[in-house]
Design a protein around this nucleic acid. Structure first.
Lengths: 128, 128
DNA sequence: TCTTGACTTAGAGTTAGCTCCAGGTGTTAA
DNA sequence: TTAACACCTGGAGCTAACTCTAAGTCAAGA
């Protein structure tokens, strides 16, 4: 697959794909004779995985470390597990914060609904 | 309350508190004769509100707009409601992404647990 | 009176994460 | 053969959100 195709498929810019590869956020992608990237199925799985993790806000630094560990082979499974576990912990904490904020927004929006309704009632009354 | 006290109370740096005020993320805080900030109860409520919203990732720009609308008074309740509703929508979308990622992390971590266990079994066997 | 320390401001610097640009190369179509 | 086009690289530029610095002010204590 060309970079244009991968870009379209995962809705990531070509610049972002090249950037991710350059910093080691996805493993090196092989080039054809002309020096052009040819993404394999596995490359695509990495792209998709990284996109998913980034969407949830996992920091690039941690993901680079994960990819690095992965490339070092079977001896790093424990380290990888620990890394993901730590990231999961932080993810859950962020989700908790968001849940609290969501509840607060719900309450605030409801109050505004109330006050808008009352404003309209007043308006009605003054029209009579 | 002094900036030092507010900083401690809400775990935000003094620089951040001054920054938030400067850009209009919290309303202007009154100064005493010496030109030093003296936070009222209401100022504190703003600080707490903004901290909560920022923790959930609401963009500063949207919050500045909200504060601006608030300061314009009763005529802006509808606009405020709409602003918060839009931000809530985006918040929910982010939470959805995170939920998906969390499930994926759970699965991945479980797989790693499996493989670590098997590694240990192998080790045990080779010790016999 | 002098010094210390907490505060003030304006403005520069930093970090994460892209995004854009310039200059160059290889393949395809006229 | 030449033009167009998709790609390449290295490096500069950008945005959001702080964070730090320098130079100054004021109140309190020695």
């Amino acid at each position: 697959m060309t970079i244009a195709e991968v870009s379209k498929k995962f809705d990531l810019s070509q610049d972002t794909l090249r950037y991710y590869e350059r910093i080691g956020l996805i493993p090196h992608v092989n080039r054809n004779k002309g020096g052009i990237r040819d993404y394999t199925e596995e490359d695509c799985r990495w792209v998709e995985f990284i996109k998913c993790m980034r969407n949830a806000g996992l920091p690039i630094e941690a993901l680079i470390e994960y990819v690095g560990l992965f490339q070092q082979g079977d001896t790093t499974t424990k380290a990888r597990k620990e890394l993901l576990t730590e990231q999961r912990k932080q993810l859950i904490a962020r989700m908790e914060d968001m849940k609290n904020t969501l509840e607060r927004l719900n309450y605030k929006i409801e109050s505004y609904e109330q006050s808008v309704v009352e404003k309209e009632k007043e308006l009605k009354r003054s029209e009579d």
